[in-house]
């Protein structure tokens, strides 16, 4: 493998080759035992954080204009949910995130495959991919606004620029990581080039593509929000910038919390899909 294994794939690389140790009939839920204790501890952590935050804000340890109390944030959140600004903003942000995500994944996976199937193409492309991958693409946001206008277009463009490289690098690494033995076996049993790709290389790459998709979800949301912060007229990013401009910190936090909730839901949906599609893999922690 060349240097194209993306950093973020580190967690997934280890998983995508089946462990040599036979995981004998270990139930997938075994590790999640004693769940109520873990959940209780988690709730405890949240309560402690909220308490410390609340005390800090109300006792005047920090300026309440800069850090509103959790209650103020909650109040703002509820108000904006009721008057419809938050749902509308989420809808707008999700739209550019979703469009950009789909375009980015499709283009990235297709490119990753095209390049990854050829050793020569991989060698030629890898330094360019590394360089473009290292470039802080968020910094392109102002430029995209000029190129694609202040509407949906610039948001989608930024999201695509983020997602496409995640998909590309992971698909490439996945296509290269197929076990030699499996390829040789298929070849000796007379697999055609098409069969080789469809029945060996593609299935072996699926975990890498899914890992990329999972990571790209969070990036797509961030990308859409950041884009809206530059001359945007709608969406969560716009809400954050305008609230901040009015010194309405509760509004800023309410919007950020909304983004966190959406991200958590997307992440959960992604995990469900991953678990279903990768049910053939040994259960993990």
């Amino acid at each position: 493998m060349t240097a194209t294994v993306p950093e973020f794939a580190v967690g997934t690389t280890a998983q995508s080759s089946p462990p040599k140790k036979p995981a004998r009939n270990r139930g997938p839920r075994e590790h999640r035992g004693a769940g109520w204790r873990v959940n209780l501890a988690r709730i405890g952590v949240v309560v402690v954080i909220l308490l410390v935050w609340h005390i800090a804000a109300t006792l005047g340890v920090v300026n309440p204009i800069l850090l509103p109390s959790p209650l103020a944030v909650f109040q703002d959140f509820v108000e904006r949910m009721i008057d419809g600004t938050l749902p509308a903003s989420v809808g707008f942000t999700l739209r550019s995130a979703a469009i950009g995500f789909v375009i980015g994944m499709v283009v990235g996976v297709a490119l990753g495959f095209l390049i990854g199937l050829s050793q020569t193409a991989t060698k030629i492309a890898s330094p360019f991919i590394t360089i473009f991958n290292a470039m802080p693409r968020i910094a392109l946001a102002p430029m995209f606004v000029l190129w694609f206008g202040i509407g949906l277009g610039s948001g989608v463009a930024l999201v695509v620029s983020l997602v496409v490289f995640i998909a590309l690098t992971n698909t490439l690494a996945g296509a290269q990581s197929v076990e030699r033995n499996q390829l040789t076996l298929a070849r000796l049993y007379g697999a055609s080039r098409a069969q080789m790709i469809l029945k060996v290389i593609l299935p072996a790459t699926v975990p890498w593509i899914l890992a990329a998709g999972h990571l790209a979800l969070a990036n797509a949301l961030s990308g859409a929000i950041v884009s809206e912060m530059f001359l945007g007229q709608n969406g969560l990013g716009f809400l954050i910038v305008t609230s901040s401009g009015l010194f309405n910190m509760a509004g800023v936090f309410a919007a950020i919390f909304m983004a966190m909730i959406v991200a958590a839901i997307l992440d959960w949906l992604g995990s469900m899909l991953e678990t279903y599609l990768l049910r053939w893999r040994p259960p993990q922690l």
Partner: peptide, 30 residues
């Protein structure tokens, strides 16, 4: 490469995404 030769490699080389049956049927599927 000839199709009429069977091959048993040093590792079992089972395809992890295929069930036992589908692994066994793999050469016939090809």
């Amino acid at each position: 490469v000839r199709r009429d030769i069977g091959y048993m490699p040093s590792s079992d080389s089972l395809l992890p995404w295929r069930t036992v049956r589908n692994n066994v049927a793999f050469p016939l599927e090809l």
